[in-house]
Design a protein around this nucleic acid. Sequence first.
DNA 1: CGTTCACATGAACAAGCGTTCAGGTGAAGA
DNA 2: TCTTCACCTGAACGCTTGTTCATGTGAACG
Lengths: 193, 193
Amino acid sequence: MNKRSGEESKRNIIAAAIQVFADYGYDNASMRMIAQAAGVSVGTLYLHFKNKDDLYLTITKEWIDDLNELTNRALDRIDDPRTAITVFITISIDYTREHREMILLQGRKFGRCLGLEQKQQFFRKRRQLLTDIVQRGVTEGVFRSDDPAETARIIFNVLRGFIFSMLIDEEALFRAEACVDLVLNGLRRRNNG
Amino acid sequence: MNKRSGEESKRNIIAAAIQVFADYGYDNASMRMIAQAAGVSVGTLYLHFKNKDDLYLTITKEWIDDLNELTNRALDRIDDPRTAITVFITISIDYTREHREMILLQGRKFGRCLGLEQKQQFFRKRRQLLTDIVQRGVTEGVFRSDDPAETARIIFNVLRGFIFSMLIDEEALFRAEACVDLVLNGLRRRNNG
DNA sequence: CGTTCACATGAACAAGCGTTCAGGTGAAGA
DNA sequence: TCTTCACCTGAACGCTTGTTCATGTGAACG
């Protein structure tokens, strides 16, 4: 194989690994498959990554950081709680749509799993973000909630359900607004606007 | 090993398999582990099941039938759409709580997976059940919905999110009512009852 | 030119897998 | 008592896996 820069190889491997991991799941994806998809030999994988776990964790860390930064940047200058909820949900759903393989890969390894703590920390941080938004909404009188933390957890669950459905059914073309609308307005008919 | 009835062995194996599958995931659960947990030898597994897939599919079919019957029986004589939604959600959540390992095991194999069709059919049937309830609610004027099928899908997603959170976090002690309340009433403050 | 060194290779290895099968065991019927 | 037969056993087989390592390659530098 031609000589290449180390960094380029590493990027190729990561891209290939995401694809193969997502297609076959962590366990069924073999290092040989990843190597072939990346156009390198097995040995090269171990030149850039300590082992299979390391490769997986690198990928995980990468998208967590990515989504975190994206979210923080978007929410930075938004004051209205309703807008903030909308943006939070929209970003989460868009990100899933754009990085379906990578998120799918995560779903394929939930439970007692590799990188569990960093993922839990990630979720905790995001729930905290939501709690703050709800708290602000209650203070401003636009949301109803006895317990903002509990409400945030509920919204988080709702969002997770939507994302899950996107992962299961590739064709699920629903609008993020449908999710937002349900969270904000509920199913029951309102007698006024 | 002592002589036992074939049926008893089979039940033992199924119980052990659910536990082991749930603890380790389908791929990491080996036939040797299941055999040991069931207190039989590997050979015996193949006496009662064609292979690993067959064992897994048997388990899957069992809980699908179980939950289906449970749901149908409960919804049979309920007319009020609000009560029906409440019952549907409550049953789903309770069932998950009581059969956490088995449901967890399913989650561990979603995507391109074994028994995909029967699971998809199961989900379709349940969504249809919800669609009917929503439709009735709209007709009776207690629910708002432009598209009952879409609304049912949304509720389904919400429910799935809640169930997912139960699987991830064993300690997640939330009340089914919290889920029902959000679905029915939404986050936004209502100006009237 | 020769030396160096980061990058790359793929055969080889031990371990674990799903699955098979020749054989063992003991209650039940003849 | 002997035969039958459903039930059970676990060593063995072929295969795949993650990982290692002796070896190769070629640009860069003196």
